[in-house]
């Protein structure tokens, strides 16, 4: 019994914006299954009352003063863009709803 189906992998790929091929779907489903089996061993660890570690070395209240620093020159900003128009980044038509 596999833990992750082909359909589930397809759903995840859509969430992650990856246009995966059918061959990849098959391969990933099988490989992820093996990996997830290993991960399930974590389920056997007793972590009752254990605080999660999100940072290797815990630091608190790391702030920056509200002092402006130079931005990049616009040429440098736009230089990397695959398609720029009128000093902006051009993208194809957007299907999704705006947030």
């Amino acid at each position: 019994m596999s833990t992750i189906s082909r359909e589930e992998v397809a759903h995840l790929a859509r969430l992650a914006r990856l246009e995966v091929t059918d061959d990849e779907l098959d391969a990933f489903a099988g490989q992820l299954d093996v990996i997830l089996e290993s991960m399930k061993t974590l389920g056997e660890v007793d972590t009752e009352g254990v605080q999660p570690t999100s940072h290797a070395v815990p630091l608190v209240n790391v702030f920056r003063e509200d002092q402006p620093r130079p931005s990049l020159p616009r040429d440098a900003v736009l230089a990397g863009g695959p398609d720029t128009v009128e000093d902006r980044f051009r993208v194809p038509r957007i299907l999704d709803e705006e947030e």
């Binding site: 009128e86 051009r90 957007i94």
Partner: peptide
């Protein structure tokens, strides 16, 4: 409007 637009331009 986003609806019917053929492309969009982004300013960050």
């Amino acid at each position: 409007r986003i609806h019917g637009a053929t492309e969009s331009l982004v300013d960050y």
